[in-house]
Nucleic acid binder design. Sequence first.
DNA 1: CACACGCTAATTTTT
DNA 2: TTAGCGTGTG
Length: 693
Amino acid sequence: MPERMALNRGALDLDSLNPEQRAAVTHTEGPLLVLAGAGSGKTRVITTRIAYLILHKRVPAPAVLAVTFTNKAAREMAERVAGQVKGTEGGARGGPLISTFHAFGARLLREHITLLGYRPNFVIFDAQEQFAVVKSILEDGAYDEALFSAKSAFFALQQAKGKGLTAQELRTRRGDPAELALGAILDEYEQALKRMNAVDFEDILRLSLRLCREFPAETRPFLERFRYVMVDEYQDTNRCQFDLLKALAGGRRNVCVVGDDDQSIYRWRGAEPGNILDFERVFPGCRTIRLERNYRSTDTILAAANQVIRHNAARKEKTLRGHRGPGRPLEWLLGEDEHDELTKVVAHLRRTLLQDGGHPGDAAILYRSNHQSRAIEENLREEGLPYTLVGGTRFFDRKEVRDALAYLRVIAAPSDEVSLFRILNFPRRGIGRTSQAKLSEYAARQHRPCIDVLREASRFQDFTGPVARSMETFAALIGRFRERFAHEPLPAAFRALMAELDFHRAVEKERADPKSGEKAAGLIVELERTLDYFARTRPEAGLKELLDHVALMAMPEQEEADSRPRAITLSTVHAAKGLEFPYVYLVGLADEVFPHKRSLAEGGEDEERRLFYVAVTRAQRQLVLSMARQRRRYGETLRQQPSRFLLEIEARLFEGESPQGDYVGGAPVKARRTEEAKGRFLERIKGMGEGRG
DNA sequence: CACACGCTAATTTTT
DNA sequence: TTAGCGTGTG
């Protein structure tokens, strides 16, 4: 908290930084590696460093580039930098570029993608669209079904692309049937995307890199604009991003990367924390600064975090040092079953907030896997406590929203045939599966885009009268709205489109349950309002920009009255990275749940441990850990053992019972009695809480 | 083309 | 257990 206040004063306040932080801020020339432990103020270091460059070093703000992984982080960083340079001369000249790797790449591609043989109007395919392509490849092609399900093929393909493997390499590398097939699938996949003038997320990075390498004359002016480059969450970069960073660094090598190998939790997605070690090799003479002073958590919480993470062998040795004193002990809650566990958690939470005068927004309940949120939600609803769920199905992933957006995508780029087939018969217009198959086959045979065939459908024998007419009407509609979107304001054209399609009614009719139909239609209204907001905040932007933003999830969020959440945060540990809360409840801590069984099977114990470390270090004041003695899974009842990570924490850090007891034959008698006593106590307290509302 | 039944799989997912 | 998907039927 004291850090925030210092920032808001506007002027640059180097005195309030600790020596390491200050060193990181003022080391501006040449490569710099900042190893920033959890809660060591790394965001502050980055933003202050940007401000320092602009205000003290007189670097023009647009010459500064900061790369983050999430739009949220980018937005936050931009806000904080703006606060620091606001009203100063340096801040008046246009800001630094703060962007995700992907948004940065997309920008480069928008400028120069024609150099790589794409047409200018390329579209970005997200995971769902990629999956649709893979699926259709498997359906059409003669692939051994035992080798790949659509899902596993999609997964393998993503992994391969993330590692930068080409179809060629896959086919020749090992020669085993799975890799051979995967190579062929990747080949077809890339052809399909190229044909549709589409790129996926990995392509954004790969093609950007190709542009930098193969067309230096064209890209250099843009790249050289950035004299100072910073990367946040550096441990999460994959190979391609690292290469891109090297290209960006150029000869100046004014690169500052900030990361923590202990918080690398996305290796399964292609992140290479080894890039941290490579940084010192690729940028020789680099300065390395460790930030180990933690400003977030109590010493007790930090001790627990340190004790656990110590068990990982391959890591850069770091020990978080706190300065807030021991604070409260950890607490261990043990439930008979999941419901019992959560009842105890919620009772504890209620009591704590009551005692401390805390706010529900100060607390978070964290868990390993998404499905665990359901039981928690039920419990909180029973108790009438407010909560917000982080993650889950996002707005832009909702079926109805995707359907509406698919129209926009086809209008912007009719070559996007994934979207085209998505909407061809929605709302219903009598172009069924058979007609669609005919269309796709015919277009392929003629080497013509589907939209052309649709436009002149009645000229081809393959389609019967009504179907052909329907196809032409559809093509005409797309053409008409192409015009309208070119000339009318985005929200107006969109509303006209929805009205003409009678989209609301189609969406409602699709659901059997009228309640859920109404809800679904409500999403479309929400989408309309989102477009209003987009048009208002970015008046110069057109359809293309809108779609890029949606694809990169960079949609500006709706104005929030209060940036501090008013409700208890429910989140997976992954999604909670970068967040902090006074009270953290880490639930479902049974072995094989966390660490997850499947992850263990794949040799991922260390990554699970890092995940646990991330979870523990979210807590500022109090950490409560919990588990259910038994759990129902797929109908059967399982006994559970405490997570192995809990056993790595000294018992003395806990108040009362600790997880180190004997659980094999049921709990020790003493533990059981304590639990009951505690339960009664909590019940009493709970009543008090309700009494006051 | 809509609905119903049966099979399968069940981690995490910044873009 | 359950949700989501694919296949088969009316």
